[in-house]
Design a protein around this nucleic acid. Sequence first.
DNA 1: AAAAACTTGATTAACATGGTCGATTCTAGC
DNA 2: GCTAGAATCGACCATGTTAATCAAGTTTTT
Lengths: 155, 155
Amino acid sequence: MITQKTKYALKSLMVMADEMARDGTALRIEEIAERSGAPKRFLEHILLDLKRAGFIGSRRGRKGGYELIKNPRRISIAMILRLIDGPMAPLPCLSRKAYQRCEDCKDEETCRVRAVFGGFYSAYILMIESLTLADLMEDSQPLERFSLSEVAAGE
Amino acid sequence: MITQKTKYALKSLMVMADEMARDGTALRIEEIAERSGAPKRFLEHILLDLKRAGFIGSRRGRKGGYELIKNPRRISIAMILRLIDGPMAPLPCLSRKAYQRCEDCKDEETCRVRAVFGGFYSAYILMIESLTLADLMEDSQPLERFSLSEVAAGE
DNA sequence: AAAAACTTGATTAACATGGTCGATTCTAGC
DNA sequence: GCTAGAATCGACCATGTTAATCAAGTTTTT
């Protein structure tokens, strides 16, 4: 499950990208909240995170607001997921950034659970790292670029 | 992240499948705990769940224990994940079994977040439903059966 | 009858999630 | 330089989940 917070983050980014494509005026937090469906007070934290990470910029006071400062093609879905939700790995022992040994695991090298979920994970990473905010905004099916074909393993 | 509980469940099933392949005697909960690395008291609950779902059988009293009663080829990883962790969908609005409308979503049909994660999810489902306990126990890379190829979208 | 082992339900501590609130700091415009 | 409007910051809180542990059963075999 991706968290509600991440969903709000993605939707807010879409709103700001939309505005950026149109004219470029900064949006008040309240307007972003309305257009993305996120509660205003909660959205504050999210926008702060996005700002600290360099995706958006802000101006305070009158005429203030938030605006996208990064090219939507340069913002991958994976970046946002990692920023808001934290590590994406299905097992702690599979995370590069937040590696942790599994207490219950005798030998990591031969752990079958690890091997199998590692397989899933690398396929997932491959897809989600290549998908960008720009893809999220286009109408097409962004995963069409990938084809997942099952190869009969001569059984 | 898959939960620790699910990991214990998978490992316990592997232990029992291993024993089944060898001779077929029921294993005491304590032995399963040792061999899988799970705490005994916690494992009790897990084995109960697996039993109620019909994967394993139990005998009480002296000479009692648990044993696998289903063909490992007929037990998909997805079944176990769903049983222990619950629904696997990345968004509540994508789950078949536990569907829930997203409050913040104006129109589900055109929601881009939903469309994109729906794409991931169906690829994931395809893989995890076809992977079985038997695959988990073999030494090969079970996901070799799938090939994930990136198709350049003539850009 | 007693021992071994499964079964059940209650309880727990720690953490994550999804918020809310109040106070503060900055900035444009009068 | 005052003030209204806006972002910023930090603390707080309610609820639920996770990963266990424990006590007290019940059932079966020897």
